[in-house]
């Protein structure tokens, strides 16, 4: 399974970024091969719709799940258009988030857990 995680950095010791649309990096982790790649979140500086763009890019990477501290209503709507699993309220290192996912310790989120523009510090 491929998982997209909002991350503050580029390694497994980086932390889960509390913001989805305006996080620094995305880590795409493959739980079958235990390998990962990362990419910079180019959406983070857009004026609006950062979550929408970031969610779309994650889906283009054919991920099966997404993990973040928080996901706003617009990104949530994009994710809901496919059947992927959404986990929010996750913090700590990427490594521990993956471990929690593998141990079925994460609970799927049914609704956005923050308002629009949360990641802009408003």
């Amino acid at each position: 399974m491929k998982v997209c995680i909002s991350s503050t950095g580029t390694t497994l010791d980086s932390n889960v970024d509390p913001r989805f649309g305006r996080c620094a990096f995305f880590i795409i982790y493959n739980t079958d091969s235990d390998t990962f790649e990362y990419y910079e979140n180019e959406s983070r500086n857009t004026m609006g719709g950062a979550g929408i763009q970031a969610a779309q890019k994650a889906l283009e990477n054919k991920v099966d799940a997404v993990i973040s501290g928080s996901i706003g209503p617009n990104a949530f709507k994009v994710f809901q258009s496919s059947q992927i699993k959404i986990y929010t309220g996750v913090s700590g290192s990427i490594r521990s988030a993956i471990a929690q996912l593998k141990n079925n310790e994460l609970t799927q989120t049914a609704a956005p857990n923050v308002q629009s523009h949360y990641g802009m510090g408003r």
Binding site: G48, G49, I52, Q53, Q56, S81
Partner: peptide
């Protein structure tokens, strides 16, 4: 359409479109 939109009002996933009218 999605690539073009500067305001990210259009999300295009596979053959689906999610349109954000307010953007």
């Amino acid at each position: 359409c999605s690539d073009f939109c500067h305001y990210n009002a259009v999300a295009a996933i596979d053959n689906k479109v999610i349109f954000f009218s307010e953007l």
